[in-house]
Design a protein around this nucleic acid. Structure first.
Lengths: 174, 174
DNA sequence: CCACATTACTTGATGCTTCAACTCTTCGCA
DNA sequence: TGCGAAGAGTTGAAGCATCAAGTAATGTGG
């Protein structure tokens, strides 16, 4: 059943649906964020991850790992966010080759404005379509695939093991 | 439990993993196709869908629906595929405003060359990480989400209902 | 203590995607 | 029949992602 390169019928069906979701879901979420906040999913995630970090500050490479991106991509995006006044970059006092990105007050405000609408859309498109078992299945399936995509776990916003409870305050749902 | 815009902890965890998969999985599949065949996932899918159509021919708008894309995106991509000699466009004899895309023999050969490696990568990254229940969960979860993303079902490579058995020959795993 | 590799990050070019605007054809209907 | 609306597709510009190459700082072996 799992011995060749080919997929059996069940797998084929599951894969095509997965491919369709991979196409349509990011597009739908981007559309909501673009319309309501003028942000891409990626730039929102970048702001959201900073907003949840104590001190609202992270080195570029740590931030890149958190949002699953290359440093190059992040650098371009942070440059745009910086122009909007939502983030500033400054050299780290601790190491001369590190640049830290800091979320400004305006950036924090932007996240606060944007988070509820985005969370509602995630809920509408994903969780409202699933019952409780579905949530577990989704977590389980994605965890398994994530293990294949990034075995080292270095580049991954969230570990596969249980997470520590988040510190007080609502997370930004990035 | 599902009464506000916010996500509870289980949902938050499930969503962040989903987001990570949505980021990393297309990138991984694109990387394999780019390396081994010089194709994007989308251009491969376009060729693959044509290869499974009787006559290897589809109107642009039907093809767009099949690969879940806008007509504009498809038009640009088919223009590139046409330059490579894998597809040709011709006016439909049936209606003056329809253009049909036809997979050439070279295009068919390209699909045949490319399909096994791509299928193997899909298997490696997804199905080898899942047991049989996982395949069902994946199909079920993605079907539910797909229902939200595209309730009309117009733009969707595969219906949510059972599929008819495919005609003879291996599908191209697009 | 000096060369060399490595780490951290930026930049510019290239290519793909999206968006808006456009053409051309067909349909509806008076 | 003829005019407006809707459908099918293309095109060009703008934005975002990726890739390769670059700079600058910091470790590391001799």
């Amino acid at each position: 059943m799992t011995d060749g390169p080919w997929l059996d019928d069940d797998e084929q069906r599951a894969w095509r649906r997965t491919a369709a979701v991979m196409t349509l879901l990011p597009a739908a979420l981007d559309a909501q964020l673009q319309r309501d906040a003028g942000l891409t999913q990626f730039s929102y995630l970048t702001l959201a991850m900073l907003s949840e970090t104590p001190g609202r500050t992270l080195p570029m490479s740590a931030l890149a790992a958190t949002v699953n991106s290359s440093l190059s991509r992040l650098s371009h995006v942070v440059a745009r966010l910086e122009q909007q006044g939502w983030v500033i970059r400054e050299p780290s006092p601790e190491s001369g080759r590190v640049t830290v990105a800091r979320l400004t007050d305006a950036g924090m405000e932007k996240v606060r404005e944007t988070a509820p609408g985005h969370a509602a859309e995630v809920r509408r498109l994903i969780f409202d379509a699933l019952d409780c078992d579905g949530v577990e299945s989704l977590a389980c399936v994605t965890a398994a695939i994530l293990g294949r995509l990034d075995p080292s776990g270095g580049m991954r916003a969230n570990p596969l093991s249980q997470e520590a409870p988040r510190a007080g305050g609502r997370p930004a749902t990035g």
